[in-house]
């Protein structure tokens, strides 16, 4: 039954729609408006339920190329997760360690991780780019970026 991609995706969408609807029905009411804040969300929620059901029964009309996209080798998935993890660490440390340091390290390691092997160029670019942006934002435009632990 659940062989087709469409039916599997539609089940996920159905779950999203139901969760969204549950929260929609819990919205507090406000007395001074004709159409309250919960009306549109409820309409959207039920619309998604309806569309998900349609999708469940619809024929899979993807082209071969589109299907091919989903065949990602294991190694490549690791690659994506790795970059995702780097981004996550970046966000986590941005306001703790400061913009220049974390950005430079991010660019350097992310490029290295993706297979860039000119370490010197990589180092120069990562530091120069981060320092340039930092300088332009903070000194020229007076927009503060986190300075962090560097004595700036």
């Amino acid at each position: 039954m659940l062989k087709s991609i469409n039916s599997r995706v539609s089940l996920v969408l159905l779950v999203i729609a139901i969760v969204y609807l549950i929260f929609s029905y819990q919205l507090p009411s406000y007395a001074y408006t004709e159409v309250d804040a919960d009306v549109i969300p409820k309409v959207l929620g039920w619309l998604l339920v309806f569309l998900a059901i349609l999708l469940f029964f619809s024929k899979d009309n993807e082209t071969e190329a589109q299907r091919q996209k989903r065949n990602i080798p294991k190694k490549e998935i690791g690659m994506l997760l790795g970059v995702g993890a780097l981004i996550f660490i970046y966000i986590f440390l941005l306001e703790i360690l400061g913009f220049i340091l974390v950005s430079a390290l991010f660019i350097f390691f992310c490029s290295l991780f993706l297979g860039y092997r000119s370490h010197i160029v990589n180092g120069i670019v990562s530091i120069a780019f981060s320092a340039f942006i930092y300088f332009v934002f903070t000194s020229l435009l007076q927009i503060s970026l986190p300075s962090g632990i560097l004595p700036l």
Partner: peptide
């Protein structure tokens, strides 16, 4: 590889 890092950086800034 470097370009990808820079695009990510650009989006985040």
């Amino acid at each position: 590889p470097l370009l990808i890092s820079l695009v990510v950086m650009f989006s985040m800034i």
